[in-house]
């Protein structure tokens, strides 16, 4: 990281009005508020149906202070392409185009348009805020819902399948910049967003976004739970910069350190109620093996 941002020097300028309809303790609100600080005023947003549509407000009042185009569910990245096309046609080259979609809008219904836009090399930043289910419609399972998690469409025994690795799918498109982030590490997200702006072409963010209502935990624990996902080694903060994988921030500092057991994370949320001890054990093994690989490979860390 070239820029060293701290809480003290992070801009006070706000781009989201209070009094919006996001739930109390919403993880998305934290990341949206922070990333917009990094994106700045010269930005056009593109948003499909999602919790962000709710946060943005009901006509004729908008919570976001940036121009924003609401589009159909499957078309986010294509619509971002259209905004860029018009900006190019008009010679408006300085404006950043940023798309914000949930996990369903990214990994499921929006994947085709996203893949197409990435293959065409469209010059936009795509933010996927992953709250691991269709929260806006009432917690239905999505492509990124982890295995055995209870949702309203996997209500008894949990989701049988494991989640898909969207950053890896994006990496297969050969993007110059891919980053993960977490609602619990806003400065890390801010820095990565500032950095992403220095690249051109498609750039992708995958952001772990705790959801009190959907995950079943008290609203005051959003940041704690997101932090636990990183500290247990379940969700890793990293960048893939021109193909080079690099752990960042808290995850980078965890190399060679002891991690709390993943069970600590699972027990904080009602959605993991159906996880068997055997499954938790299996997940722990997967996480341990992943971190062993990081350590053996000497995965470059940024600090």
């Amino acid at each position: 990281m070239t820029t060293k941002t701290t809480v003290l020097n992070l801009t006070e300028e706000e781009f989201v009005h209070p009094g919006n309809r996001a739930c109390s303790g919403c993880g998305l609100s934290i990341i949206y508020r922070t990333a917009l600080k990094a994106l700045g005023r010269d930005t056009i947003l593109v948003v499909p149906p999602s919790c962000l549509t709710v946060l943005q407000g009901l006509y004729p009042i908008a919570a976001t202070q940036l121009p924003c185009l609401n589009v159909t569910f499957a078309s986010t990245a294509a619509a971002a392409t259209g905004v860029l096309g018009a900006l190019r046609a008009q010679g408006r080259k300085h404006t950043t185009v940023a798309a914000w979609a949930g996990d369903g809008g990214t990994a499921d219904i929006g994947l085709q348009a996203l893949s197409g836009a990435c293959e065409r090399g469209e010059d936009f930043i795509f933010f996927c805020y992953d709250n691991e289910a269709y929260m806006n419609t009432g917690v239905q399972r999505s492509g990124t819902t982890p295995r055995h998690v209870l949702t309203t469409t996997t209500p008894v025994s949990g989701k049988p399948q494991k989640s898909k690795d969207v950053p890896a799918i994006m990496a297969a498109h050969g993007l110059d910049y891919i980053a993960t982030a977490s609602a619990s590490y806003p400065i890390d997200l801010y820095d990565k967003t500032v950095k992403a702006k220095t690249f051109s072409g498609p750039r992708y963010f995958h952001i772990h976004t705790p959801c009190p209502a959907g995950w079943g935990f008290p609203a005051n624990l959003s940041v704690k739970i997101g932090r636990l996902a990183v500290e247990t080694g379940l969700f890793d903060l990293y960048e893939i910069e021109r193909g080079r994988f690099c752990l960042t921030g808290k995850s980078a500092r965890m190399i060679g350190k002891k991690r709390p057991p993943v069970a600590d994370y699972f027990k904080t949320q009602a959605r993991f109620k159906m996880l068997s001890d055997a499954h938790i054990e299996a997940v722990q093994q997967e996480v341990d093996e992943k971190w062993e690989r990081y350590e053996k490979a000497g995965v470059p860390a940024d600090q």
Binding site: I44, V46, L69, V71, T72, A74, S75, A77, A78, A79, A80, T81, G82, V83, G85, A86, L87, A89, Q90, Q112, A113, S115, G116, E119, R120
Partner: peptide, 19 residues
């Protein structure tokens, strides 16, 4: 584009951006 759905998405967005 990669689909007709996206073709019109591009037109919708570009038209909304003034082209």
């Amino acid at each position: 584009v990669e689909s007709e759905h996206s073709a019109l998405a591009v037109c919708i967005a570009a038209s909304s951006t003034g082209s």
